[in-house]
Write a protein that binds this DNA or RNA. Sequence first.
RNA 1: GGCGACGUGGCCAAGUGGUAAGGCAGGAGUCUGCAAAACUCUCAUCAUGGGUUCGAUUCCCAUCGUCGCCUCCA
Length: 467
Amino acid sequence: MSLKIYNTLSRSKEEFEPIEADKVRFYVCGPTVYAEAHLGHAMSALVFDIVRRYLMYSGYDVNFVMNFTDVDDKIIAKANEIGADPYELAEHYINEYKRNLAELNILPATKNPRATEDMPQIISMIEALIEKGHAYEAHGDVYYRVESKDDYGKLSGRKLASMNAGARIEVDERKEHPMDFALWKAAKPGEPAWDSPWGQGRPGWHIECSAMNMTHLGEQIDIHGGGNDLIFPHHENEIAQTEAVTGKEFARVWMHNGMMSLKSEKMSKSLGNMITVDEFLADYPADVMRLWVLGGSYRGPLVYSEEVIEQTEQAYKRLLSAKKSALPGAVGLQADALATLQNEAEKAKADFKESMDDDFNTAGALANLFELVKVINLARADGATDVQLAQAQGVFMELAGVLGLTLEEKKAQSASDADAFIDLLVALRRDLRAEKNWALSDKVRDSLKELGVILEDSKDGTSWSWE
RNA sequence: GGCGACGUGGCCAAGUGGUAAGGCAGGAGUCUGCAAAACUCUCAUCAUGGGUUCGAUUCCCAUCGUCGCCUCCA
């Protein structure tokens, strides 16, 4: 079995073959940092984290670069609005973003380049484009000439002619063609600006990604990812610029995640219908967010609703059940039953890989994981000992880890302090139960539940856990 | 208007030319003082209408519906 990935460029699944064997050059478009990260950002980041983890699991050495757009109209506008320095504003949100990623158990990028830190490369790339006739200067601005290459539009499947017809944007007269886009914008008074051959100014949005790609990964990369809202114009323009400069194919595979929506409307900063990552994580473990994303197809939309999140939370609890220890009085499995358990675990692993190899079919992989949960729980119910469960549970945790699930149950702040008292209550309750004082023993159980401690009785004793 | 995606049980969601994974919820059991957990059993004919085929949910066409992009956006 080999990995197949859906390539937006060809609109089909293709066998994945990196440029250099065993190495993957992976670039993902990060956010423009002027506001808190919302669940849509989290979805995208999780999708590519899962892709990256699976590539690593498959033996690839992954060089994962995600940029931050830290100079842009929105950042400047927001900074002016609140009277802050644009650079510091960006700095603030970059740190917040990184904190959110860490909380979501997303592996840190190999590199997080920022537009403002690669200015010389951006400028020299624009110079190269002008030199080759793909760009032109006009009053301190520099525009990319979309008609200079005849494959413009190949990613998004658009033809210049048809776009022209529907253009409702006011056409800037300095442009040769309405679709020409800015590589460099002349500075207006008070805006952050850098020196350039065309005067003071700042880079356009698309060129920074091209320049950062080239600087940090090289002229050609294996995978370029981002939200599907970036296909046009952002990624289309990135391809145009980069290929115009290098004359080589830019990215082998273009991956795009679907959008998150809230009540049938795309969640976005500009629409204001967003739930921030912090808001979500205040109520649910990071694993629930990840599990929710894993439950669907990364290319499709994800619709937020309380009901779905609660369902996901229940599913999460079921996943957790596989980790539990053997029952107190476990007598051990017969040899054939143990063999079945281990075979099933290996089968789950093989099925899991097969699912993931098919364009990261996480919903299928998750189903394979749940099948393993069932097998483990069944073995435990049949009396398997901890030692006998270990192999299957090891496979289970390995696969969960590939998906980035930690399955760590959250502990109360002062867990270590409380433990002794809870143990004491459980011991007292055992005596109450021995005396068949059900009223009091139930009261202890109910009261502890209100404090977030779950008691579970079995004929061999009582176990407890934090909710 | 142009380009694209999608429409599977109450909810979420895989998948296949030969009658449909998994999760949540529901129903019935086992276990238990009770509860919880776990386990067992149970719950769909795949938007609609045509067509191709021995046979389609899966291929083609049309219709309806939902969503995304075409402007900043993960």
